[in-house]
Design a protein around this nucleic acid. Sequence first.
DNA 1: TTTAGCACTCGTTTAATTTGAGTGCTAACA
DNA 2: TGTTAGCACTCAAATTAAACGAGTGCTAAA
Lengths: 342, 342
Amino acid sequence: MLTQRQMRILWAVIDDYIASAEPVGSRTVSKKEGVGFSAATVRNEMADLEGMGYLEQPHTSAGRIPSHKGYRFYVDHLLKPQKWSPEDTKLFQDMIAQKIDRVEQAIQHTSNILSQLTNYLTICLGPRIFIDKLKHLQVVPISDRIAISIAVTDRGHVQQQRIILPEDVSLSSIEQLVNLLNFRLQGVPLSDLRQVVDKELQLELQRHVDHYENTMVLLDQILQIRQKDHVFTCGTTRMLEQPEFRDVNKLKTLLDFLEEEEHLIQLLGPISVGVKVRIGDEIHIEAVNDCSIITASYMINGEPVGSIGVLGPTRMNYRKVISLIDILTKIFSEQLNAMYNE
Amino acid sequence: MLTQRQMRILWAVIDDYIASAEPVGSRTVSKKEGVGFSAATVRNEMADLEGMGYLEQPHTSAGRIPSHKGYRFYVDHLLKPQKWSPEDTKLFQDMIAQKIDRVEQAIQHTSNILSQLTNYLTICLGPRIFIDKLKHLQVVPISDRIAISIAVTDRGHVQQQRIILPEDVSLSSIEQLVNLLNFRLQGVPLSDLRQVVDKELQLELQRHVDHYENTMVLLDQILQIRQKDHVFTCGTTRMLEQPEFRDVNKLKTLLDFLEEEEHLIQLLGPISVGVKVRIGDEIHIEAVNDCSIITASYMINGEPVGSIGVLGPTRMNYRKVISLIDILTKIFSEQLNAMYNE
DNA sequence: TTTAGCACTCGTTTAATTTGAGTGCTAACA
DNA sequence: TGTTAGCACTCAAATTAAACGAGTGCTAAA
């Protein structure tokens, strides 16, 4: 267990290091406000903190820097999240507010603001639409063999795909099929479409539809509403400002890693409620071993549907980022809901 | 006018500099294959070439590097584009070939390959769809006040937008309106929709539609099919490998510039047929003054609809890039056309 | 238990020096 | 007259050396 004094010193070291990115010496800590002991005392305590694994020393004659364990303790026990005044809240609301045409664009906009405010890189994941319910299905033939299949959900998402029309299927039978699907599948969550068709519509289709085999091929294509998760990054270049990425090789390793959408999704992790902080190797990804990521999700009608994350060096400003991501996702969720329940 | 020998030397300097990124000295040139004269001779000629503005000298005791004027001469008169064998062509075709679902994705895929092959950053512009013709219009209400308006074009592009339903407009009158529009506007290019409505449909609408005022508000929204040009970059991180961007500040200036979509569009310039090379200040954009960009467009049915560009330092491998962008856009266009005429 | 004092460590900064690739000029040569 | 060998000169970059100073651990006194 850490003594009160040790916590005070740990806090001072981390606080200073976050601001300066330089190893913090005993004198610096000793002179900090709220620290009443001499440099020598601080030295002793720092040696102990290092022994316990909360601090590290780059080399003998340098100051101390926090270890991952140190940051973890800081985040869990020392950090007091910022309180926002009503004026702040109002300001954030105004920043985020905009004509929302597509949720994807809107979350990107919010992500951008978060990146500006924190000066770190942000990653955001567009909304999962599988919990959305089908509102309307449409097949528009654009040539003899090709058609566009479109699905609109109750939340206004539109999914489209190019499908190949089987030969021997007339336009009227396509229309017939689509009408039937619209009639029977309205209100069914996208994730369940396939299931419902298999369970409830199979027989009916077999009975009513001509060219059963071919129509099934068509149906299969229509139902393949596979959502490609859409992830974006904002403010990649802000990473260049971080002293830990002065080294072009380190930078390249990171940026290369971030170019892959899959990696970004991996980085955000599963969508979960509340603010989550993962520090360094807690992320379990080699390429971001000296980074931390703070994630939160946004909700529609109480259901988390997408997430947003802030990636920075482990020496990131946890207090600021945690407070900001928390309030911004909340405000964003509110505005989304307001829009849906308009 | 340059003598044969001067051209030979200019060529040698540029060729070497493209490969090494280091100022080229007279001895190096003299020893190059195909150059029969001594270093002293080369020195004299290089001094002349510098006088004429084709070469530059970073400082007195360094070798020469090409000036923009030098590169321009090289591209216009010295460079012989690479010939591709049928095997090469086949290889490229296979690389580009894939199930094309959306043109946007496909051009991005091609752009990615171009970036891999050249090892430079590429920029691509999704297809302009305003020359596409309207195939189908649909309005799907998703709540009392909100609807999604969808337009499908003859080439299978889908444009969607959220619209606000005026009060006092019944579902049936919306349907009536959409039916009328579908009937009268099919085959009209998206760019002309507004015009055709104003000229040919105004009266008809006035006569047939209830709640004229409100319906007009609706119509205005439906017709606002504004395409946001979609531009992507591929392989941004390859820029980090270029020695000219070792300097983090320079890099940041460039990457910051490239983060803006508008800048990318500006960078690609107007869509035009054939391969275009712009060198350094020819681009007329401060931020990329020491870069060159090579652009080409891809076609659908003989009509250029989008473009792709390769951005690199002025010391880029013009020969390789020009040859590659030429053949890749051609192959891509072929595959697009094959798909459309399937 | 705390703290002042002091010798010691070691990365960083600054200055001085060396190195070497490359030049321009001159004079000899074909 | 055009070409080339030779040579003194230039200057950025690399190397080396010295000085610096922030910070430490340990000891002994308060």
